[in-house]
Simulated scan of single mutants.
Amino acid sequence: MTLRAAGAADVPALAALHAAAFPPAEQWGEVAIGAMLDLPGGFGLLAEGAGFVLARVAAGEAEILTLAVHPDHRRAGLGGALLATAAVGAAARGAAELFLEVSERNAAARALYAAAGCVEVGRRRRYYADGADALVLRLDLAADSREAPPN
């Protein structure tokens, strides 16, 4: 599946994908997604109708703000492709490491992040609406281990 940069015109589609991918208490609407895209250093990648990732880079660090894959497109490698492409984009923007949070209860996402080389570096107690802890993960973005981002 082809990934492309996401912009302001994509906000409604991104919000629809987020709503399909997350439980109601964790869904982001158009206002929140638009605000994330507008953050200094913010960027997004979209696989039309299937999934997207929003990230930002600041002071040599990157953060995955959200990564959403529509349920109909899960277990096909899209989450890994979104994460890997975001990591490449973050490294190209000067980040040396990438951080993200994942629910301790989300086994599929935890497996995806572990396979990508993310390591747990912290925990946010009762972070999610369902009371689950957020695991704080870090991925080193060594320049020699990442390919150039797609044009």
Rank of each mutant, 00 (worst) to 15 (best):
M1V: 13
L3Y: 12
L3W: 14
R4Y: 15
R4H: 12
A8T: 15
A9T: 05
D10E: 10
D10S: 09
V11I: 12
V11P: 11
L14D: 12
L17W: 13
L17Q: 14
A20K: 12
A21R: 09
F22M: 06
P23M: 00
A25L: 00
W28G: 02
W28E: 02
G29K: 12
G29H: 13
G29Q: 10
I33Q: 15
I33Y: 15
G34W: 15
A35N: 14
M36E: 15
M36S: 15
M36A: 15
L37Y: 15
L39H: 09
G41P: 03
G42W: 13
G44C: 00
G44F: 15
L45M: 00
L46M: 07
L46N: 05
E48Y: 09
E48R: 13
E48C: 10
A50C: 09
A50V: 06
V53K: 03
A55T: 01
R56I: 00
V57F: 10
E63W: 13
I64R: 10
I64W: 14
I64V: 15
L67N: 02
L67I: 11
A68I: 11
V69K: 04
D72P: 13
D72R: 09
H73R: 00
R75P: 00
G77Y: 08
L78R: 09
L78P: 02
L78T: 08
G79V: 07
L83E: 09
L83I: 05
L83V: 08
A84D: 07
T85A: 08
A87Q: 06
V88T: 03
A90E: 06
R93L: 12
G94D: 08
A95N: 02
A95H: 03
E97A: 13
E97T: 09
F99A: 06
L100A: 09
R105H: 15
N106F: 09
N106E: 05
A108I: 02
A108Y: 01
R110V: 04
R110S: 00
L112W: 11
Y113K: 13
A114L: 11
G117A: 14
C118Q: 06
R124M: 04
A129D: 01
G131F: 14
D133L: 12
L137E: 10
R138Y: 05
L141S: 00
D144Y: 07
D144N: 11
E147Y: 12
E147H: 13
P150S: 05
